[in-house]
């Protein structure tokens, strides 16, 4: 049973359709990137999974059940939605305390999550004075409060500085490695492509693709740039596969084969690799092509 699942989910607001007959499932133990341009329906889908809004038709399921049927909500699912959803006059610590008390989570856990997101020093200041990045971290602290089995994060990287982004990536990977389910939305492929193993892409409320990052990297026009000690030997080895190989100066551009497979192949042949890099540019281009929207561009 998938941890999170939407089945033929449709959500209409008046005449506009925010989510249109969308189905996908999210498995435990990996980070799933939920991608789409702004307005694609990501937030609506996430809110349906959290029981905050009712589907017009179809279902949103958490551990196989509707979200309102969760026995212990904060320990099942933790969510960080928009970073602005705090009372500006309440301190960060008190915000977390109100949630902890409601879910019967002991007080020391509040201090633990404050420490985790590095907000201990600012915990008694009112949220009014927090930067966007601090608000994002407070939202993450709230999501982590119940040590939930599932994390749903809506554009968590907004407002984070480069160190913050790196910290977030490490945190998400660690959470997934512990067997938790992590669904993280973004309108930028580059933000999730270093973390997510699985990608769910939507546009105009409809599913465009659900694929692993490796497949996405290998598929279509995406290419991997390889340099090796024995470039000719590697080109020969690659020639025996379905990959398309072209020479680019001191490197090879390989299409139709993921970076991992190329690495494995090189190891089998005993060829030392000097560089092995998925061509980011082509990944982004493919993503934009799929999304068909300028907004998906960085």
């Amino acid at each position: 049973m998938p941890e999170l699942e939407v089945r033929r989910l449709t959500k209409r607001y008046g005449g506009t359709v925010a989510v249109d007959d969308l189905s996908f499932a999210v498995e435990a133990g990996k980070v799933t990137g939920f991608l789409g341009p702004n307005g694609a329906g990501k937030t609506t889908t996430m809110r349906a999974l959290l029981g905050l809004l009712r589907p017009s038709s179809g279902e949103a399921l958490v551990e196989g059940r509707p979200p309102v049927a969760m026995a212990d909500p904060l320990r099942t699912i933790g969510a960080a939605l928009e970073a602005t959803a705090f009372h500006p006059g309440r301190s960060g610590r008190n915000h977390l305390r109100t949630l902890a008390v409601a879910a019967a989570i002991p007080g020391p856990r509040v201090e633990e999550v404050l420490e985790m997101v590095e907000l201990t020093g600012a915990a008694d200041r009112r949220v009014k004075g927090y930067s966007l990045g601090m608000r994002q971290r407070l939202a993450l602290a709230a999501a982590l409060l119940g040590e939930p089995r599932i994390l749903i994060l809506d554009e968590p990287a907004n407002g984070l500085d480069p160190q913050g982004m790196r910290w977030l990536r490490d945190l998400l990977r660690a959470q997934a490695a512990e067997g938790r389910t992590v669904l993280v939305s973004s309108h930028l492929l580059s933000e999730v492509s270093q973390t997510a193993e699985e990608l769910v892409m939507i546009r105009d409320g409809k599913l465009v693709a659900q694929t692993s990052l490796a497949e996405f990297t290998a598929g279509g026009g995406a290419q991997v740039r390889v340099r090796a000690a024995d470039l000719t030997g590697l080109a020969e080895a690659l020639g025996e596969t379905d990959a398309t190989v072209s020479r680019d100066g001191e490197a090879l551009l390989v299409g139709g084969l993921g970076a991992e497979r190329i690495g494995d192949l090189a190891l089998q042949r005993g060829i030392a690799l000097r560089e092995l890099a998925p061509e980011r540019q082509s990944l982004e281009e493919r993503f934009i092509e799929l999304m068909g929207d300028e907004e998906a561009a960085p």
Partner: peptide
């Protein structure tokens, strides 16, 4: 109303979906 004005209603109803 403050819960709706500042958007904290979402956090509140995540703790208690009912």
């Amino acid at each position: 109303t403050t819960e709706f004005r500042h958007g904290t209603a979402s956090s509140t109803f995540l703790v208690s979906p009912r």
